[in-house]
């Protein structure tokens, strides 16, 4: 297996997405984008969190504990959004056999799991002083815990096979099955009685949040998203290079043996 054929697009697959199947092209394009993603992530997250921590007003009931929201809510959005990206990559891998989709899925998993862990941890730290409990088994909290286990299962599954192709295939199926959980997370607070409050920001009405709190939240959420993308792109670049190193080394070993 040669380094370049390892990434060669499938015959007849001259689609747009397959342009980036070429590892050199992906490395060049992602290398140009990565610094900007990372800078935007750092800057916007910094503005959002400092604003939320020191300048946004305290809530009339929650007091300063409302400031945990500036981490919890973006982490929760990214936990679900990251899983959606994982499912899209899995679909591209399963249906179109896009060679970068497997890599993307394998690298989104750990970052998404980290966002979910951050969401669960900060939620717990908010729940204790506000609700009076670190954890309750209501539909929202339980479905997000299931999301965390889906991420962990995906991380383990894609790395469990000697043949990475089979791992990617199994992981894709798990990721797509787990998509059922996303609407359950989103609508759990509307469909059932939960301790967790319903959504503040909806498509149908004005956000039930004061603008002075909404702005830092939006900055933080945007910054988290750029940071998430930067981490995934950096990890994918590393994975592409690692795959190329393995291919070059095995090609060299075979040449020496011959």
């Amino acid at each position: 297996m040669d380094a370049s054929t390892a990434f060669a697009p499938p015959a007849g697959g001259g689609r747009n997405l397959h342009r980036f199947a070429n590892p050199g092209r992906f490395l060049r394009a992602s290398g140009r984008v990565l610094p900007w993603l990372a800078a935007a992530g750092l800057l916007l997250t910094g503005i959002g969190l400092l604003w939320g921590l020191f300048f946004a007003p305290a809530d009339w009931q929650q007091g300063d504990a409302v400031r945990i929201m500036y981490i919890h809510v973006p982490a929760a959005w990214l936990a679900s959004g990251g899983y959606f990206a994982l499912a899209l990559a899995s679909l591209a891998s399963l249906v179109w056999r896009h060679p970068l989709a497997d890599l993307a899925a394998a690298e989104i998993g750990p970052v998404g799991a980290a966002a979910t862990a951050l969401c669960l941890g900060t939620g717990s730290l908010w729940g204790k002083p506000m609700w009076g409990a670190w954890w309750v088994w209501d539909a929202r909290l339980t479905s997000v815990l299931v999301l965390f286990f889906l991420y962990l299962g995906h991380i383990a599954l894609v790395r469990a096979f000697d043949d990475p192709q089979r791992g990617a295939r199994a992981g894709s199926i798990l990721a797509l099955v787990g998509v059922v959980n996303l609407p359950i997370i989103k609508f759990s607070v509307d469909w059932w009685n939960t301790l967790h409050q319903p959504a503040t920001i909806t498509l149908t009405g004005a956000p039930t949040m004061y603008v002075g709190m909404l702005w830092p939240l939006l900055f933080s959420a945007l910054g988290f998203s750029f940071g998430f993308a930067a981490l995934v792109v950096a990890r994918m670049r590393a994975a592409v290079m690692e795959r190329r190193i393995r291919a070059l080394l095995s090609a060299r070993a075979r040449a020496e043996a011959a």
Binding site: D64, I68, I71, G121, L125, W126
Partner: peptide, 13 residues
Amino acid sequence: NHLPYIVGSYALF
């Protein structure tokens, strides 16, 4: 108020 919980959250982040 609730400072330990806030510090804990930002430290976790």
